[in-house]
Amino acid sequence: MKTLAVAAAAALLFTPAAHADPAKVAHTSAKFESYSATAKAVTYDAKVPNGARVTVVGVPAVSGGTSVLLVLKGLLPNRAYGAHVHVKKCGAAPADSGPHFQNVADPVQPSVDPAYANSRNEIWLDVHTDANGFAHTESTVDWQFTERHARSVVLHNEHTHTSPGEAGTAGPRLACVNVDF
């Protein structure tokens, strides 16, 4: 599994120009730590331990889509986490990263309408760690970030819900990583 994730990350990073514009590739690798103005990855809860590692790679395709890869190491073993791309950078408080980035923004916020809060309109990266606390996932959508950019990926306490009235929710925010999409 780890080899697959490394190969996928390398493939995304070194895709020929015919598939992606390297200038638009987003990438962050960091260790989770307590908040500071210079922290790339922030943990707000012991369910994402200090020192756990994260890599996020976002690649736009010439066809107009975007793929985002999330790789995590050192999390709690055998545990589900929700993860989504958010609109703002990580901050001192979990809510500082703002809402989920939506390609078509829901006029009602917070968005819990499945017409907007879904894996086609948002980037969902839910994972389940293995016995060693390792997990990886990829999400591909058929749109790209334009003048509206996302700024982070947030890890949540549980997998993402999809029912009306709770669509897109995944429990408390446990950690955040800055990624300039």
Rank of each mutant, 00 (worst) to 15 (best):
W124S: 01
P99S: 10
C90V: 09
V62K: 14
A135P: 02
K47Q: 15
S34L: 09
V42Y: 12
V48M: 05
S97H: 12
V57D: 04
L69C: 03
V71F: 05
L75D: 07
S97N: 14
K89L: 13
N132L: 00
H84W: 02
Y81T: 04
P94G: 11
A95Q: 13
A41G: 11
S97K: 09
G65I: 03
N103Y: 14
S119G: 03
D96M: 08
E122P: 02
G133E: 10
P107G: 02
G98R: 00
S36W: 10
S119H: 11
A92L: 07
T28N: 11
A95W: 08
P110M: 10
F134E: 15
S36G: 10
A135L: 05
T43E: 04
F32N: 08
R53Q: 14
H128P: 00
S97W: 06
S111E: 07
T43L: 01
A83Y: 01
L125A: 04
V59Y: 10
L125S: 04
P110A: 08
L72N: 05
N132S: 11
A52G: 11
A131Y: 09
G64M: 10
A135V: 07
A37T: 15
V59M: 14
A135I: 06
P60Q: 06
V68K: 00
T66I: 05
G64P: 05
L70W: 07
A117V: 00
K88D: 13
S34V: 00
S63P: 03
S36H: 05
G51H: 11
A117G: 02
A83T: 04
V68M: 14
G74P: 07
D45V: 04
A105Q: 14
K89N: 12
D96T: 09
V108P: 03
Q102H: 13
G64F: 06
P110N: 06
S111H: 01
T28Y: 03
Q102W: 03
N78T: 01
N118R: 15
E33N: 09
E33S: 13
L76D: 12
N121G: 02
A117R: 03
A105I: 10
H128D: 00
A37H: 11
H136V: 06
V127R: 09
A80G: 01
N103V: 08
W124M: 01
A93T: 15
H84T: 13
